[in-house]
Design a binder for these strands. Structure first.
Lengths: 219, 219
DNA sequence: CGTATAACTAACTAACTAGTACATACATTG
DNA sequence: CAATGTATGTACTAGTTAGTTAGTTATACG
């Protein structure tokens, strides 16, 4: 009798809490997969870094691949939720573009794990996204917002009329993703850390300028 | 005696050819590492896809990591050699930028394995580049060419005078790398293949326009 | 209060995986 | 043509690794 510590306040086994166990596994797994990739991450190590055991990974996520997909889903739904909150309808079109670009810039900078998971998923030819029902049909609020901004900008004669929202989204993403995703090789070759805080504002402004000069070209 | 086939013309063991063996291993390894990442690639499988044995990998490359580094070195020296050949000194600055951007665009499109290796190396925090003497001190001819173009453009009053060559290189790289590296997740989410040949010219022109509008802004 | 079920643990296993020991054949050179 | 080093192949091994088996404990609920 009394295998467990009687009543120790600190080292209590945290009782039973399915949700806490599940989310702790997911949080640790996200870090591990983002750090080492799908093949490089170790199920045993993920388990060791939680307060539970490996068996629970199989209990809740059905295996390594299921866990990886869940981590991806959580990361993507996170940025989608952020995008949903953005309200740029009341802003001048140019200012709205700036706001949207800055949002992407800030998100990517503060969520390197997300960017790394995306890189890793591309190495896997987006095979897991295709397999996930959640991710395959996830709407893109930022794209809708962008479409409306471009529409307004065109109507006001401020923006050129031959640009596609997806292309604009791509320009912004390319810049912001590259800065985070390719930070290490870039720094090794050019001896310049693109994430250096001293240069942060410079790049943050640059992406807006770049896109806006393009959108307003000849006007 | 006579363990080997006496004289069969087709299935001859290709005699002995150290250079051929070495380069065949390297070619197969490049494909495997680019396809599956460092942790995902299998030494046994690389060996099986060559006409030699696993033993030779250890003989020539000293192990999995040595092989991976050699593959990286080969990929990087390839693009550096290409850049060395580019001659844009005789062109109008704007046209020179277009030429340079197109060169990057074309190279990245036709060398997806290189782009994938770069992504993979970033997942590994560029640890292997740092370790490689060849890669750590590799000059960047494209950057020198770009510096001279910008200089000329500034002198002619065509370009703004507050841009850094590394930043311009980054804009071009970001766009071209993103298009190839993030092709799969982008396509899964936006249902648009950025490498579709029908859209190729569109994107190829777009990156030049984007950079040039920025460089000539307000002029 | 006792029992069904959800939450959880420890120990095990079969398959894999990077790397090695050992043997040997070929080619070059004196 | 002997001998010496380079190039190559076979078989093996020690350590991992994803996944499983066989349970135990806590909690909710009648």
């Amino acid at each position: 009798m009394a295998t467990q510590t009687p009543d120790s306040p600190a080292a209590a086994p945290a009782a039973r809490d399915a949700e806490r166990t599940r989310s702790e596994i997911l949080a640790v797994a996200t870090r591990e997969f983002a750090d080492k990739g799908f093949a490089g991450a170790r199920v045993d190590e993920i388990a060791a870094k939680t307060r539970t055991t490996k068996r629970m990974i199989y209990y809740y996520f059905d295996g390594k691949e299921g866990l990886y997909i869940s981590a991806l889903e959580q990361a993507y739904t996170g940025i989608r939720a952020l995008e949903q909150q953005v309200d740029v309808e009341h802003l001048d079109p140019a200012e709205a573009i700036r706001r949207l670009a800055a949002l992407t810039f800030d998100h990517h900078e503060s969520h390197p794990d997300f960017i790394r998971l995306v890189s890793i998923e591309n190495i896997h030819y987006a095979r897991h996204i295709a397999r996930s029902e959640i991710l395959a049909g996830l709407a893109n609020p930022a794209l809708d917002a962008l479409s409306r901004i471009l529409e307004r900008g065109r109507a006001a004669g401020q923006f050129r009329d031959d640009v596609d929202p997806i292309d604009v989204h791509m320009m912004i993403s390319a810049f912001c993703v590259f800065r985070t995703a390719n930070r290490y090789t870039f720094s090794a070759i050019f001896k310049r850390d693109m994430l250096d805080p001293a240069r942060r504002d410079h790049y943050r402004t640059m992406i807006s300028d770049l896109v806006l000069e393009y959108l307003t070209a000849g006007r």
